[in-house]
Write a protein that binds this DNA or RNA. Structure first.
Length: 508
RNA sequence: GGCGGUGUAGCUCAGUUGGCUAGAGCAAGCGACUCAUAUUCGCUAGGUCCGGGGUUCGAAUCCCUGCACCGCCA
């Protein structure tokens, strides 16, 4: 039986417009999923949308439709973008689906029955026009931070989750599992947050209706995070603990943005503990993108729209840039200049041109029919070895979610390929018929190295890798077993195709 | 205010437990080749490793202190 691998993105808020941050998490998850599939894993890759809450309810009223109509309409923005980005998710969960509501109701009832959810009173400052509760510390000079109007102290009946009870258990878990929260700096933040003391968490609201009602008490709607986080198991069929749930849970990694780390590293694990379910293996919080050095915001109108980037540069350029430019886990800056730099240097000049010059020579010297190689000498063997070693290096970096390092390792082989051509100088060999055998070996070595490279790269740049492998006359389905040397057979038809990546000469 | 982090070549950053003349990529300059998307390959960086003090035979790497920036919490 294949080993399993379960990876998730957050479910994105349906009312938001997809931006580069959403694309980032999802592309990273996709690369991970594709890579693990390639390596023989039985992969479940989940993404989806969070469709409940007051904002959706309000937006729907404004638009003159029901909340579900609104959600149905706008969820397509995400689904269409994932389609364009080549996202290979196994499932797309919407929190308005019956399977999800069932899962949430069940886990809520379960914890309620165990006594870790109880009915109490929630007292805080309430802004009536905004219909929002604020804590004392959120207020700005005693007024609503959103609209600056006066607030009043209000008591609301609310269900509470006994999160405080799980403080020590959670700390012990984090202690025992050093990789549970990553990167490390974020883990430390969470640890100090927990040590300051966990309070019980209000997990229901009575101020709006668009959501999942508390079982047995319709006046209460289950709080957003309790609802949303449960998607990770409701999508697997929970409360049915057979089938996909037993197959994939606990999740191997939740990929998230750093803004929602607390919910994933504190709330979610304690919910699971209370429900008696296993905890995630890993929660990885990646960084934020600034744009041209500035924080992304609607008011600055600098939100980077992924569709625009794809139109302008192409899918794989965007995928490559996002994962190569910045170490996963750190913040990074998006700029057109930097993207074009990467595109020209790494993609057009290095990898694109390497394939171009290689296939051109195969066509020119051997009419595009891959010749039988003769004995390999040192420089051939060096490239072969380097190509083989790259696989283990990439594997290690992928496990660490160090996507940029994995790509660097792949590019080391690309560079070695370019250098190999200069060192072996096929154009010189071609001048003397006596070197025919040697030339054949050089061409074979060169193309085989790229065949393996593009097989690995298919996890990152599926479209490009497909084009490159087609150019190499390689049509087999890629798998771990195919990553060993010798996949290209003599007689294979090599064709020079259009450039994998254009050079971008414009200013922006 | 509490806790934590960062500050290394023009830019982005690597630099395990302190130890050869402090490294990589990109940018820039020079040279070489010509198969290729004027692409590739080679060579070239003399950077107070934020400032100051200390420990040590020896510190970018440890300790103290100052400055700057950032994150989490309050």
């Amino acid at each position: 039986m294949k080993p399993t691998f379960y990876v998730t993105t957050p479910i994105y808020y349906v009312n938001d417009v997809p931006h580069i941050g959403h694309a980032y998490t999802t592309v990273a998850a996709d690369v991970l999923a594709r890579y693990k599939r390639l390596m023989g894993y039985d992969v479940y890759f989940l993404t989806g949308s969070d469709e409940h809450g007051q904002k959706v309810e309000k937006a729907a009223i404004t638009a003159g439709e029901t909340p579900l109509e609104l959600a149905d309409r706008v969820v397509k923005r995400y689904q269409a973008l994932w389609e364009r980005l080549g996202i290979s998710h196994s499932d797309f969960i919407r929190t308005t689906q019956e399977r999800h509501k069932k899962g949430v109701s069940e886990i809520f009832s379960n914890i309620l029955a165990k006594g870790d959810i109880y009915l109490g009173e929630y007292e805080d400052w309430y802004c009536t026009p905004c219909e929002t509760f604020w804590t004392e510390t959120q207020l700005i000079e005693g007024r609503c931070p959103d609209c600056n109007r006066p607030v009043e102290k209000l008591k609301e009946e609310s269900y509470f989750f006994r999160m405080s009870k799980y403080q020590e258990q959670l700390l012990a878990h984090i202690e025992a599992h050093p990789d549970f929260i990553q990167p490390k700096s974020k883990r430390n933040e969470i640890v100090s947050f927990i040590k300051e003391g966990l309070r019980d968490l209000s997990v229901s609201r009575t101020t709006f209706t668009w959501g999942i009602p508390v079982p047995g008490n319709d006046r209460h709607i289950i709080y957003v995070w309790f609802d949303a986080l449960t998607n990770y198991i409701s999508a697997l069929g929970y409360p049915d603990e057979t089938g996909n749930y037993s197959r994939y849970w606990p999740v191997d990694v939740h990929l998230i943005g750093k803004d929602i780390l607390r919910f994933h590293a504190v709330y979610w694990p304690t919910f699971l503990m209370a429900a008696g379910l296993p905890l995630p293996e890993k929660v990885f919080a990646h960084g934020w993108w600034t744009v041209e050095g500035q924080k992304m915001s609607k008011s600055l109108q600098n939100v980077v729209e992924p569709n625009m980037l794809i139109d302008k540069y192409g899918v794989d350029v965007v995928r490559y840039f996002l994962l190569r430019e910045v170490p996963f886990g750190l913040d990074g800056d998006f700029s057109h200049t930097a993207l074009i730099q990467r595109m020209n240097s790494d993609l057009a000049n290095d990898i694109g041109n390497l394939l171009s010059r290689s296939t051109a020579m195969a066509v020119k010297y051997f009419e595009g029919i891959l010749p039988e190689p003769s004995e390999m000498i040192d420089i051939d063997l060096a490239l072969k070895t380097k190509t083989g070693e790259m696989i283990a290096i990439v594997d290690k970096f992928i496990d660490e979610l160090a996507f940029s390092k994995a790509l660097q390792a792949i590019w080391d082989v690309i560079s070695a390929g370019n250098k190999y051509i200069d060192d072996s100088a096929p154009w010189t060999l071609a001048k003397d018929p006596a070197n025919r055998g040697r030339l054949a070996t050089v061409m074979h070595t060169l193309l085989e190295s790229q065949r393996i490279t593009h097989c690995v790269l298919s996890a990152f740049l599926p479209t490009t890798a497909g084009k490159a492998l087609a150019s190499l006359g390689y049509a087999e389905e890629i798998s771990k077993e195919k990553l060993v040397w010798g996949g290209l057979k003599a007689g294979t038809v090599i064709t020079k195709v259009e450039a994998l990546f254009p050079r971008y000469e414009g200013k922006e």
